[in-house]
Structure formats: structure tokens, C-alpha cells
Computed example of a mutant assay.
Amino acid sequence: MSTSSTLAQPKSIVVPPWREEGAQPFVQIDQLSKQFGDFTAVNSVSLDIYKNELFCLLGGSGSGKSTLLRMLAGFEQPTSGRILIDGVDMANVQPWERPVNMMFQSYALFPHLSVEANVAFGLRREGIRSSEVKKRVTEMLDMVQMGHLAKRKPHMLSGGQRQRVALARSLVKRPKLLLLDEPLGALDKKLREETQFELINIQDELGVTFVVVTHDQEEAMTLATRIGVMDQGVITQIDEPHQVYEYPNSRFVAEFIGNVNLFEGTIMGDERDNVTIHCPDTNSMIRVNHGISCAPNQTVYVAIRPEKVRISREKPLQEINSTQGIITEIAYMGSQSIFKVRLTSGKEVRVTQPNFARDMGDRLTWDEVVYLSWDADSSVVLLS
């Protein structure tokens, strides 16, 4: 056998279905609205979700994300619009007849039943034979690493363990679509981070389509194949996590996802591959490496993420995309340090730097005059 034949072959590149022309969505939400009296909770939302996706609806309280999830489950009836799951209109389909299961934030475990009895409950209600129930429950508990605690009651489990039992109970009936309402909200930060990766692995192994509702930006960024950012009943942007973070389509999305510095300015020049903006906040010109096709002298906003801003005692050679200020706050976060810098205009800018070295050395400190700079491809122009 030749040496070359033993080498691993590169994996073929799989194009996500939402990028494929003509791909059929698994869940179709068409002009869906929900009103409670005079209040519109969901306003003409249209959304396609594809098979095996882990889609996150991200938004603050009152954004409409949980109402949208409840309409998918059948617990709320739309005021107008349609929901199709696997090509079937759900208009006259009762919640218990939909190919859907839902995992609630509270987990809703039966306190008097053991772990295995909780997971088996739905299967037994359907009259599935005992041998099949036992097999599926055992497989699911092993998958969520809870098989060794099958005989325990919920009050004997930690929050993370109860979350796994609730997930197993939701998946054991093999739904086509699993809806998760703030599934990790009750867990502490470290356990939540660990469980996020476990959830991704379980979803990938089972191939079930997940729709997750969360208010936690980091959770959505970690879990999702795509994110739908909701505000006041409307989805303002749908995209893959890195696209939502790097290329927000509005000030709301830029500020809601992570931290961002926003500078207001006036368009001075707009070409196909760059735009120049006069910015009083920085007392300088800002150049961004993309065009926006707008009117001269139009007011716009430049969004720059804190980790993309350089901070130094030395004045940079570049005059464009640079400014000066004084350090007013420093927060040491272990892996990184956060600096707040007040510019001469009074504008406050946030800068983050990774802490590569253990020795703090001659570090920047409070009340120092510093220079900030960034690259032309590190920012994005927003019209609203």
C-alpha cells in the first residue's frame, strides 16, 4: 500500500441548507402575528428553519420570542399567519398531535417519580410496550449521562442533573422538532457553559431540529447554527452567529449582541469599497472598508467591537481611524482586561485586551493619556 493512500482524505464541504437555492425548510412561519387585546406580541414574522438546525430566538423580555415558541407548540393560537412543520399546516392540529415536544425553563419534572419514570411517562401514556419503553429510556439516560441516577427522585438531583432529565424526557418520544424555552437559565455560569456543548453534541447525534429561546447572547452564539434577533415582536436580523456579531444590520443588534462602541458621524465620501466619515466623537476621520450607497452628508453610526481597538501610550502613525483619551476605568477579568477611555470629546470608549503574559509589568493604568486606533476593516457602518 502506498503512503499516500493511508493519508486521511479531506472532508467534503457541506453547504448549509439556508445557503442552498431551492432548499426546502422544515419549519415555515409565514406572516405570523399574535395580539393580546391592543398589544401586539408578535408582528408579521416570517421565518424558515431547516432540518437538523439548532436555531436560536434571541431577545430581551417582552420581545415576543416565547410567544412565538408557544405558537409553534400549539399552546397559543395565532391571530393571523401560518405555521407549517414538515410541510403540514398546523392550523387545526392540537398540541399533543404535533410532531413537537417542548422543554420548559422550570423543567416541570414530577417530584414523586424517579428519574427513569419521569423520562418514561410520555411513552407509557402512548401505550408503548414495556420492553420498548425500557430500551428507549435506558438509551436516552445514557446519552445524557444520567443512567447511574435512574432510581433517584428529582429533589435528590442538582440543577444540572434535573436539566438533563428534562432534556431526556423531551427527546425520548423522538419528536421531529424540540422547542427549548430558556433551557439553561437556571444553571450557574460554569455549568451552563459545559451544558451548552453537551446540548450541541446531543442535537448533532440525534439529528432533531432544535428551536431555542434565550435572552443570553453568549448562549445563542455558542449553540446556534443561526440566530434570529427579536425586538418588539419583530425579527430584526436572521443570520449565522459570526455574521450577526461582525455585521449587525442595526444599532439595536450591534448593542444587543456583545459590547460595541458606536460613533455618530457624517458621510464625506462613499465609494464601492470604502466610506469616509467625519466623526466629532473621535475628532478625526473614520474610514470603513465597505460602501453603503447613501446620500452625502447623511448621518450614520460606526460600530467597532472593543477587542478590535488597539490601545497604546505611543501615538500611531495613522491619522485616520485613531483618537486620543484618558483611561478612567480598568477591570482585570483574568483572561482579558477591560479599559474605559474618555475621549477629549467626552465620549467613553471600551477596549478589551487579552492578558497573554502572567507578569503585569509596565501595564497601562488609571488616568494615563492613551491613543486608540483600529483597522478600516474592523468596523461597520449602520444607517439606523
Rank of each mutant, 00 (worst) to 15 (best):
R272N: 10
D273H: 06
N274P: 06
N274H: 15
V275F: 00
V275Y: 03
V275P: 02
V275L: 04
T276A: 10
H278K: 15
P280K: 03
P280E: 05
T282P: 06
T282H: 01
N283P: 00
S284E: 00
S284L: 03
I286F: 04
I286P: 02
I286A: 02
I286L: 14
R287W: 07
R287F: 05
V288C: 08
N289E: 14
N289F: 11
H290L: 04
H290P: 07
G291E: 02
A295W: 01
A295H: 11
P296G: 04
P296V: 00
N297W: 08
T299F: 05
T299K: 15
V300S: 01
V300L: 06
Y301N: 08
V302A: 02
I304E: 07
R305P: 06
P306E: 03
E307Y: 07
E307M: 09
V309A: 05
V309T: 09
V309Y: 00
V309Q: 04
R310L: 14
R310Y: 10
I311F: 01
S312I: 00
E314R: 14
P316C: 08
P316R: 09
L317R: 15
E319W: 10
I320M: 13
I320G: 08
I320E: 13
I320F: 09
N321P: 03
S322P: 13
G325D: 08
I326G: 04
I326M: 12
I326N: 05
I327W: 09
I327N: 01
E329W: 10
I330D: 05
I330Y: 08
I330M: 08
A331Q: 13
A331R: 13
Y332A: 11
Y332G: 05
M333Q: 15
M333E: 09
M333Y: 10
M333G: 02
M333K: 15
M333V: 09
G334S: 05
S335I: 11
Q336I: 01
Q336G: 03
S337H: 00
I338C: 10
F339T: 01
K340Q: 12
K340S: 12
V341K: 06
V341L: 07
R342N: 06
R342D: 02
R342C: 04
L343G: 04
L343N: 02
L343P: 05
T344S: 14
T344A: 10
S345R: 09
S345F: 00
S345D: 07
G346Q: 03
G346E: 05
G346N: 08
K347V: 09
E348D: 07
E348W: 06
V349P: 00
R350T: 13
R350F: 11
V351I: 12
V351E: 03
T352Y: 03
T352W: 03
Q353C: 05
Q353P: 02
N355Y: 07
N355G: 05
F356R: 15
D359E: 12
D359H: 12
D359M: 12
D359P: 07
D359W: 13
M360H: 15
G361N: 08
D362R: 14
R363W: 13
L364T: 04
L364Y: 04
L364K: 02
T365M: 11
T365G: 12
T365S: 13
T365E: 10
D367W: 09
E368D: 10
E368L: 09
